[in-house]
Each structure stands twice: as structure tokens, then as C-alpha cells.
Write a protein that binds this DNA or RNA. Structure first.
Lengths: 164, 164
DNA sequence: AATATATAGTTGCATGATGAAACCAAATTG
DNA sequence: CAATTTGGTTTCATCATGCAACTATATATT
């Protein structure tokens, strides 16, 4: 049984990431975990997802080292929790949440406000920041070739940046 | 013809975002545009995507106001470019790229380095930042209900944050 | 100007992924 | 210890994607 070609073969960090978390439901499952959901039936209810698909997604995330599947005492119902690798996904989820807040808002106002635990102050909107800590617009950023992509750059060298 | 249920009905900013950019190929198309790709045949070659799917994805992005389809002079081949709404996706793409850099690296080193145009200095890794500008760990952040989600919060009030 | 080729799609069909329902064993509850 | 819930697996129908053939228009060549 041949599967859809994965993005895994592409030598691109974005494609690699998508290969792991880009399938339908996966990011919503992760959102739930960030909100404290731990068990199979909770995901099912929260997401209205088919059991078989949920099982496939959870197993994949465990295989990829993003989730840990653990039973408190031997033989009890398993719980899923984020590994450090999984916690590192938070900027992705928050960037997407902020984009939705701005461009697909709820008419009554912001749905969720993410705050710093300690102070209760809202966090900053996710944005691209220069080395010196200045917020940067898309036009102020370009890509340059690193050691990993010596000569295999797929785009014309002159257009590592769009003129938008 | 019934389609897969979209995530559009969920009152969740992340789900809203996924509904627009969460389908297979969409984020890779957007990546290419950020790198300067403009035309149908360029996407085709760069991504090795089927023409019909590419057409569907591009049309959707245009419909959603993320891309603009324009022909320089009347009747010439169209070009696709990012709107401001589309440019706002940059933090999402960069967050995903940085995660891939860290957790699915190329053995020879970083593939691309994103730098500030003006200075040539690499930008900071995307991260969650407090109001005062301090980098925050996942555990230091929690969600609180905004005006948009008055009473309809789907998770138990006590678990707006996972204990990880 | 006429011809050839590339571009930007569209259409129809085969194949892969997802969804719904039935089923089941082990864990938990009463 | 009986009943129910949980955490799945399996099967089959439906939807999405991939592939190849086809087309009309735009661009390049002679």
C-alpha cells in the first residue's frame, strides 16, 4: 500500500516540521494537550474525531518523541503528555492562534488571552524580532544559505527574498 | 457532495487558522511565495504538486485574501503575491522552520539563516515573550478567558493550563 | 505573420486518507 | 462480581489527492 508522498525527503525545515505535525487533526490534538487534556476519551469528546484516526495521530506523535504515553500504575489507563520536544511547539501554536485572533476574530472580542503566570500580564503577540530585540516587518527579513544547504538551493540565488 | 467537516465551526483561533492554511501543500506554497515564487509553473516545479491541487489551493488563498492574483498587463500570465494578511503569516512559517531546524536538522548544519536585511544579523529564534520582553518557558504561560468566549469554554475551568 | 512551444489551467479516473459504526478486551465503577 | 466506561481495532463507505490527457491562451521562434 503506497502512501501519499511525505514531505520528509525535502531538505527544508518547514517541510520537515509539516511532515510531523501537518496532518489533519494533529495540531488540534496538541492544542488540547497544551490545555491539559490527557486521555483518549477526552480528545474524542473535545474534538469530535473518529477513534481510529485519533489513535493513529497519537501513536505518530509518540513515535516522533513529541508525546509520552504513560500509565500511572501498571495496567491503568494511559495518559499522554508533552515531552520537551513537544513543548517546543508552543511558538507555532501561539503564532497560529494570534493570526486567527487578528484575521478570523470572534465578534464579541478576543477568545483567549495568554498571560504570564507570575504577573497575569498578557504575553506579546508572536513576532519576528531582530538580534537587538527590535520587531521586524516581513520586508526587513531575508534568507541566506547556511552550511546545510551548500549548493542545493532550489530557488534562484537572487530571489531568496520576495519583493512582495 | 458532502466535504470533510471543516474546523470553521469551532470557536477557536487556532482552528480558524488551520481551516485556511492547514490543508496539505498550502504552507509549502506560502513558503515558496515568501521566497519570491510568483507563477503557477514555478510552484509546480518547486513542489512537484499536481496541477489541479495547486489550482485549488491558490484559488482558496486568493478567496481568503491571503494572495492577490494579478496580471501585469491585460491578458498576460497571472502572478500571485502576498497581501498584508498573507504577510502576517510569517511568524507561523518561521516558528515552524525554527522547530525543524532544532528537531529535524540537516547533518551538515543549519539550512537557512534568516537575517535582518539592514544589518545582516540573524534574527532571534521565535519565542514566547512577556509584556516586559522576557523570554518565557511554556510552563510560565497560561490561557485566560477573553470576552469572546464568555461561558462556552470547552475545558474544565481549572485546567486552562496543563501541568505538563 | 505564421508556426511552435510554454503556460495556466480543467476534466475524468485511480488510489490513498478519513469518517462512521460495529466490535472487543481490559480497566473502572457500583 | 456485574455493569459500565475506556481505549482501542477492524471493516467499509466516502472524501481528498494524484496522475494523465486535454484545451485555450500567451509567449517565443522563424
Amino acid at each position: 500500500m503506497m502512501k501519499y508522498k511525505s514531505f520528509d525527503h525535502m531538505d527544508c525545515s518547514l517541510a520537515q516540521t509539516l511532515d510531523v505535525i501537518g496532518e489533519r487533526w494533529t495540531l488540534l490534538i496538541l492544542r488540547d494537550i497544551f490545555f491539559g487534556v490527557k486521555r483518549f476519551s477526552q480528545f474524542e469528546k473535545s474534538l469530535d474525531i473518529a477513534k481510529n484516526i485519533l489513535a493513529v495521530r497519537l501513536n505518530r506523535l509518540v513515535d516522533e518523541g513529541i508525546l509520552l504515553k504513560q500509565s500511572s500504575n501498571e495496567g491503568s489507563h494511559p495518559e499522554y503528555k508533552l515531552t520537551d520536544k513537544g513543548l517546543d511547539l508552543q511558538p507555532i501554536l501561539l503564532s497560529m492562534t494570534h493570526w486567527g485572533d487578528k484575521h478570523k476574530p470572534n465578534s464579541k472580542g478576543q477568545r483567549l488571552i495568554f498571560v504570564e503566570n507570575r504577573t497575569g500580564q498578557p504575553i506579546r503577540t508572536m513576532s519576528v524580532v531582530s538580534k537587538e530585540g527590535k520587531k521586524l516587518n516581513p520586508r526587513e527579513v531575508k534568507a541566506t544559505l547556511g552550511p546545510g544547504l551548500s549548493d542545493t538551493w532550489p530557488f534562484e540565488p537572487t530571489i531568496c527574498q520576495s519583493d512582495f
